[in-house]
Every structure is written in structure tokens, then in C-alpha cells.
Design a protein around this nucleic acid. Sequence first.
DNA 1: TAAAACTGTGTATCACTTACACAAAACAGT
DNA 2: ACTGTTTTGTGTAAGTGATACACAGTTTTA
Lengths: 258, 258
Amino acid sequence: MADANDPRARLELLELLWRGGQRPSRGPKPKLTLDQIAQAAISLADAEGLDALSMQRVATELGYTTMSLYRYVSGKDQLVELMTDKAAGDPPPYTGDPADWRAELEAWVHALWELYLRHPWTLRAQLSTPPAGPHQLAWFEAALRPLTRAGLTGGDAISATLLLLAAVRQFAGFAVDMTAGRARAGLTTEESEAGYDAALREFVDPDRYPALTALIGDGVFQPTGLPDSGIGLDLDFGVHRVLDGIESYVRARREQGP
Amino acid sequence: MADANDPRARLELLELLWRGGQRPSRGPKPKLTLDQIAQAAISLADAEGLDALSMQRVATELGYTTMSLYRYVSGKDQLVELMTDKAAGDPPPYTGDPADWRAELEAWVHALWELYLRHPWTLRAQLSTPPAGPHQLAWFEAALRPLTRAGLTGGDAISATLLLLAAVRQFAGFAVDMTAGRARAGLTTEESEAGYDAALREFVDPDRYPALTALIGDGVFQPTGLPDSGIGLDLDFGVHRVLDGIESYVRARREQGP
DNA sequence: TAAAACTGTGTATCACTTACACAAAACAGT
DNA sequence: ACTGTTTTGTGTAAGTGATACACAGTTTTA
């Protein structure tokens, strides 16, 4: 099995991602499958987070010994990579007006946001390559289609996809981290938000942080009762700006020629 | 010392962030300082990454025992939070035209990008609260100023800051992950990029991924020789779109009234 | 009917975090 | 000055986790 410090590890990973780890015909029939292992690991990570994910626990969950997993996976890192692609699943098909690329991208963003809230640990997974698995690329494809239709070409379409991806990932990350931190502190959402507001009021010096102080004074950081402290709305705002920016870019290029 | 599963942990953290862990007057004079510990930990994380960061190694680096660190810090998690704020430092002062909010934000983005490349591990640090340290907030403030001047108010200014922050963080994350993965595989940049292109060509099915296939055919994924595989340029593209979007939003609001 | 290849397992090693208790050090109040 | 209290740095030990390695049993191939 290829060491992690080896170019072969990348090829091996691709093989597993795309061909699901076909086994040679010799030897005993495997009792487990890669898919089964990845599924058990995903369930565990969903329920208790990436920190609670250990080879031991996955193995126990499946009723096998820890070391048996190493017959399917070169190590924990590789397992996480496989989990990440599997958990991504396929993006939901877009059913709206095919000409409305903005709506299609908004739906994409929304679906991805939900995916990350469903599998928060994927945001912390350390991947060794750019997206290369079938599901990761399916999401990529689903964004490229409307962007291409909007009029973006080549590298611009990639850049725009990455920009939207960046926004969703980070905003989801903000939301997830806040929820996790809140839960670890044993606070309600309201308590947590009020505590943050109070902390800002206590420590933020108006001379050093004038703009921030003004916002605090406006009550911007007070508890809102919104889910995820309103991060979803921040994301909506951001996506709207980004799509506006893309639209005006395409228009300018069209009018002015390349 | 407050357990992590305790609201007091948050107050304790704030105390350390803002008042640097003042010590009671009784007892032996401490030989270490919080700052010293954080600095050693930052150097280690810079050099070898967050995985290599252990209490043992930090202590050894300083010439003390592992457990001595626990007199200054409640645990590794808290240390990482302190490191993150300290490593953020203060944003460089903006020296350009004060009326040119776009240039100011571009400079901010650029400085932040460099910060993340200098301290890549901060992108993986798990923080228990929204930004609450003096340096984190200083960066926040530095973005709020030009955005406020641009004409954004209240929650909009926050949303826009988060959007730009999201872009920089994630693009830096892409760059960092690619570099790390490349290094672990023992490949040159060129080899790594060529390998990715080759993998896409091998596995991507034109029927299932038509838009992606078109891009691959255009040679978009071929090695470029650009630093960080051109991610910096993708970020520039993205920031340009975002600023355009913000600008048109402000203009529309001004013309139409709130 | 071997020989070869592969599976699941038991064992062992190494690194890590952190709880706990102890002795020495420094201060506070008398 | 003195004594009790608080705090520091340390030694020890427990618990968890990743993973290397060798072994015995299983299945296929020649």
C-alpha cells in the first residue's frame, strides 16, 4: 500500500474514488466493502464530529477489529478523503427556468449550504488534491453549467465557481463553528449571542475600533432569534453581490468585446 | 481552571486575549509568560503545521516540562485560540487615497492573503467564538472603515466584511491545501498540476460532466507556472466582482432611497 | 494439488493530552 | 520576623489513538 509520502498515494486515491476499490480475485472474499466503511464513518462524523472519528470506533461500529479497516484504506487520512466525496453526493437537479442562470446558482448555493450543515466535518477535512472525486466534480459541474450559460468562459468560469464555493464554505463554517462553540460552552443560542455582544461592549475601545464601536452601538450584535445567528442571511447578501458582480462583468465584456 | 464545557471558559479566554493573563501576586514568580508560550507555539506551527503542534514539543522548545504549560493555558484548544489572535497581528495601515475605498479593501484583502500564507494553520484552527480577540477585531475594523465610507450601514457592512473575509480565507485555504498536498506527495508544482490535469482527462466522462470536459479541452487545467497555481489571480477576479457588486448595491440604494 | 495472494486478527509501539499530587517559592497579614 | 496561603514547576500515571508487523485461515490460479 502506497505510503502517504509517495506520488502513488494520489493514484491509489483516484482509483478508490472512481472505481471503488476493486479487489483481486485471489484470497478470501472480503466481508466488508469500502462503501460500508465510508458510510459508517460518515454516520459517526455526522453524529459526533471529526474529532470523535477514530478507526477504532468505526471498526467497532461495524463489528470488526480496528486493523481490518486497513485492508480497505491506507489510513485515516485516506478514509476521510473518501468520506468527503461520498458525503457530497450528487447535487439536486435544477428544475427551474433553464435560462435563469442566477436562480440556478442560487439554488446551487442553497443546496451546498444545506450539505455543509448536514455534514459539517467535511469543512475540516484535509484534502490532498483539488477536487477530484466524482461527487466533488459533479458539484463543480453543476455550477459551471449556469456560469457558462451566463457568458463566462474558461478560467473566468472556474474563478467564479471558486468564489461561490468559497462563500458557501466559509459562511457554513462560520455557522458550524458558532454552533459547536456554543454547544461546548453549554449555552443557549440567545445566551451565546448576548455574551458576545456583552464581550464586545466590555473590551472594544472606541478610539481603537471606531467603526466597530458604532455598529455595536447600533445593536447589530444583539441576539436576533434568527437561525445560525443570521449567517444564512449574510450569505444571501453576499451571493446577491457576487451575482451582480458577475452579471455586470459579463455585460461589460459583451459590450466592449474581449 | 474552567473546564471547556463551561461558560466560564469563554470569560477566561477573553481575559487572556485582552489582559494577557495577569498573575496573582502570591506564589513563585512565573518563569514563563503567556506570550512566550504562544510565540513558541506559533513558530512551531508555522514551521511544521498544526498537526505537529503538541504541548510536549512546545514545552521542549522552551526548555520546560509539558505540564508547566498548563499553568498558563487550560489546554491545547485554548492555546490555539490565543495563537490565532496573536498571529493575526495588526493589519498594516492603509496609506493610499482615503476616499478610494475600493483600493483600501483591495489592500486589506492582499494583506490578509499574505497573513494566511504566512500562518496557514490559522485557517484550520477551531475557534469557540466569533472573532473576539484584539487583533481579530482590528482586522475587522480595518475592513469596516472603508465599507462604511463606501456607504454601507449596519448589518450590510458586516455581511460585506464576512464576504470578503470568506473569499480570502477560502482561496488561501485552497492554495495552502494544494501546496501541502503537493509537498506530502513529494511532487514538484509542475508535476502536481500535470497530474491533476491527467487525472481529469482520464476519469471525467464527457456525458456526465459536459461543461467540465469543455474546460479541460480548453487546457484550463494545464500547468501554468503561476505561483499557487494561479489561485491568487482567481481571488483577484473574485474580489473585483464582489467590489463591483457592493458598489452597484450602494449606488442603487442611494438612488432609490432606503 | 500445490503455490500464491489476500483477509481478518492479535500484539505491540509510539506519541499525545491531561489529571493529580508534591515540594519549593513568594507573598499577606499578623 | 513568622506562619499560613497561594502559586509554580515537576514527576507520575492513566487513557486514547494510529498504525506496523506477523500469523493463521481462505480462495484462486497454474
